[in-house]
Amino acid sequence: MLQNLETFDLRDTGVREMPKEIGKLRMLRHLLGDRMSLIQLKNCIGCITSLQTLHNVSLDGDGYGAGVVELITELGKLKELRELGLVGVVREHGSYLSSSINEMKCLEKLDIESKSKEKVIDLHLISSPPPMLRNLTLNGKLENFPEWIPELQNLVELRLVRSQLTDDPMKSLKNMKNLLSLFISGCAYEGECLHFQDEEFRKLKDLCIVFEKGALCSLKMLTLYYIPQLKTVPIGIQHLEKLEVLRNWYMPTEFVESVSSDGGKEHWIIEHVPLVEFRTLDGTFIRHSKT
């Protein structure tokens, strides 16, 4: 009966199943929930053409069956969508999901989360990635760094979580001139080196590298080398219990001061490391050893 309803917010209510009658709310612009199932709307969600925000939709309900495929296909009719959040994504959804996202020319924010850490996110947006996309989160395994991400020249924020990448993604991101925030967490990168080259990432203002408990459990040496935007210690270094050497070379003054043994507010994060070395921007070498 709420024919003029524009916002339907079901977050923090525990409601998961959406009744098909929601399809009658043709003025609805924002539909917000927590892992809500829209399988009941698989034949009518595309009729709510005024929708601008759709978050957080679960694709778990029908497994890989026809119902979830129909739902994903319907999403491609939402031409005015600005924000889309999906959870429970698996490889089998890839081609259908890619086709629908390619139709969302107004999309500004996209959050994709896989069903589990073993499930692969496999999107193919090479031909026509959303031109207005500013915020992208990929939470799940990526077999390779997506080739279409560097094509998103309006992208401001990129979050990679649980990606399990082994090739340095920085070489693909280096020409993204508008990227301001980069978040790497939860085993997003399992290679040996993240390389930020000279004159790259000139606009980056927020760099967050997170080591979660249990990740890199055998790591003995970690080197942070000339990351001017990194002003604080990467979150979770305290979890690297076997770390023997931490090298901080040519890091900004704010970073060095934050971990200083002489009153640095974040020194506690690295105090378990037997050997910590600093080489400041002016060439000064500082070595702290517990042996």
Rank of each mutant, 00 (worst) to 15 (best):
L2C: 13
N4T: 12
L5M: 08
D12T: 10
M18S: 03
M18C: 02
E21R: 13
I22G: 07
N43R: 15
T49C: 11
T49I: 09
T49W: 05
L51N: 05
H55I: 12
N56G: 06
N56T: 15
V57M: 09
S58T: 06
D62K: 05
G65P: 04
G65R: 05
G67F: 01
G67L: 01
G67Y: 00
V69Y: 06
V69D: 10
E74A: 12
G76M: 03
R82N: 14
V87N: 15
V89Q: 06
L97G: 05
S99Q: 12
S100A: 11
S100T: 09
I101P: 07
M104E: 07
E108H: 09
L110A: 04
I112S: 05
E118H: 13
E118D: 14
V120T: 12
H124V: 04
L125Q: 01
I126Y: 09
P129G: 03
P130E: 07
P131F: 01
L133W: 00
L136F: 00
L138F: 00
N139L: 02
G140V: 04
L142I: 05
L142S: 04
E143Q: 09
P146M: 02
P146K: 03
P146Y: 00
E147P: 01
W148Y: 09
P150E: 07
L152S: 02
Q153M: 06
N154T: 08
L155Q: 04
L155A: 07
L158A: 02
Q164N: 07
D167I: 15
D168W: 01
M170C: 07
K174Q: 14
K177R: 14
L179K: 04
F183R: 12
F183G: 09
F183K: 13
I184W: 02
G186H: 12
C187P: 10
A188I: 00
A188Q: 02
G191D: 00
E192V: 14
E200T: 15
F201G: 10
C208K: 15
F211I: 07
E212N: 12
G214S: 02
L216F: 14
C217W: 04
L219P: 06
P228R: 02
Q229E: 00
L230R: 01
K231V: 03
T232K: 14
I235D: 12
I235E: 13
Q238M: 08
V245S: 12
R247G: 14
W249E: 13
Y250L: 10
E254G: 09
F255I: 01
V256A: 10
E257A: 07
S258D: 09
G263M: 03
E266K: 08
H267T: 02
I269T: 13
H272Q: 12
V273C: 04
E277Q: 15
F278L: 11
I286Q: 15
R287H: 15
